[in-house]
Amino acid sequence: MSDIVLELNNLACGYGGHKIVDDLSLHLRAGDIGCLLGPSGCGKTTTLRSIAGFEPITAGEIRLLGKVLSSPTHTVPPEQRRIGMVFQDYALFPHLNVAENIAFGIAKHPERKRIVDELLALVKLDRLGKRYPHELSGGQQQRVALARALAPEPKLLLLDEPFSNLDGDLRRRLSAEVRDILKARGTSALLVTHDQHEAFAVCDQVGVLREGQLQQWDTPYNLYHEPATPFVASFIGQGYFIRGQLLTPDTVQTEVGVIRGNRAYQLPGGSAVDVLLRPDDIVGQEGSSQTAIITGKVFLGATTLYRLQLPTGSTLEAIFPSHDDHLLGEELGIRVAADHLVVFAAQGSVNVSAQLPLEQVLQDGSSV
């Protein structure tokens, strides 16, 4: 028996005759938490709504446990899909207390009280069953919404930007709690977010979307270290591209010296390439012939993020332990330690920042 819960095969969908998502294919395994990640307008929520049955599709198909839920000629109604959904605004019923909200979808279940009590304990609200939504904090309301979605034991749970209304610290804590709850229940889920930190903290598989096209569906580790496209490389994490020349399939000549990676690239020898260097690829080395001037600095607690200007004028970023303290304007010896070398055929201008400017790194913890 297949362990695939959700399959999207060559999916196309949109609104009012306008195609937003095109040729999207992915699969989610039983018990896994997946994520659709990307900037606003890339088609994340449209895809989620199509899976839920709220929007028709124009091509391809959506399958749940092998059964076709949507095709251009066939659509199973949302209430018959056995799919739960947690909305961005929680959508709790204000006239029902916590226990009644959770029980809403299982009103006729013979063991309704037991299920509600178990879910109240699971989401750590067992003493708040008689309170009403307006008497709860945002985090507590989100837990109620999650428990309500889990009560009918859905085969798949969809979460649409579920933490976007919460502040940073609560957002991080609750996202970890939600992952623990879903894993404890063995519930398969698909999350939509624009925040890569959230996606990486919660999900087993992440799909990066750009303008309705799926760029890569992979583990967070592989998205960071093995990006399939320049967009994925630039969207995930921080870093800068610098221009180089491929000497051998796994060696590149750059302005910071010769860099040898851990894989061979299928490009002709001598090809111009763009090399992605992330802050953790740059290490300090006293006495190195390669130097850089510190032009920016952000203290992050355990670490400090530095902006470095090379003698050529190109810019890099480096992250060092915070006790390894350096001053603005200081000349620093560096070397590249990029075992997971990320290289693409050269295109456009060089040394383009692959993330937010240094000054914005701490603004909201978001990646877009």
Rank of each mutant, 00 (worst) to 15 (best):
F200H: 00
A201I: 03
A201N: 06
V202R: 03
V202F: 00
C203W: 00
Q205V: 13
Q205H: 13
V206W: 00
V206R: 03
R210G: 00
R210N: 09
R210Q: 08
R210E: 07
E211P: 00
E211V: 09
G212I: 06
Q213T: 13
Q213L: 12
Q215Y: 12
Q215A: 10
Q216G: 09
Q216K: 05
Q216F: 09
W217L: 07
D218A: 15
T219W: 07
T219F: 07
T219I: 11
P220C: 13
P220W: 09
P220E: 10
P220Q: 11
Y221P: 00
Y221H: 14
N222D: 14
L223D: 04
L223T: 08
L223H: 09
Y224T: 01
E226H: 15
E226V: 06
E226S: 12
P227G: 12
T229N: 09
T229L: 03
T229A: 09
P230A: 02
P230L: 01
F231E: 05
F231L: 10
A233T: 11
A233W: 07
S234Q: 11
S234G: 15
F235Q: 02
I236E: 04
G237K: 02
G237D: 06
Q238E: 15
G239W: 07
Y240R: 13
F241K: 01
F241E: 12
F241G: 04
F241W: 15
F241L: 13
I242E: 10
I242M: 08
I242C: 11
R243G: 08
R243Q: 14
R243S: 15
G244H: 05
G244C: 11
G244A: 10
Q245V: 13
L247F: 00
L247P: 00
L247G: 00
L247R: 05
T248G: 00
P249T: 06
P249W: 10
P249H: 10
D250W: 08
T251S: 13
T251P: 00
T251C: 13
V252C: 04
V252K: 02
V256A: 14
G257P: 07
G257V: 09
G257H: 05
R260A: 14
R260S: 14
R260V: 15
G261A: 14
N262M: 09
R263C: 08
R263D: 08
R263H: 13
R263N: 05
R263G: 07
R263P: 09
A264F: 10
Y265F: 15
Y265Q: 03
Q266N: 11
Q266T: 12
L267C: 05
L267R: 02
L267S: 05
L267Y: 13
P268M: 01
G270R: 03
S271T: 07
S271Q: 01
A272M: 02
A272L: 08
A272F: 02
A272R: 10
V273P: 06
D274F: 03
D274S: 13
D274L: 01
D274A: 12
V275G: 05
V275R: 06
L276G: 05
L276H: 08
L276M: 15
L276E: 11
L277Y: 13
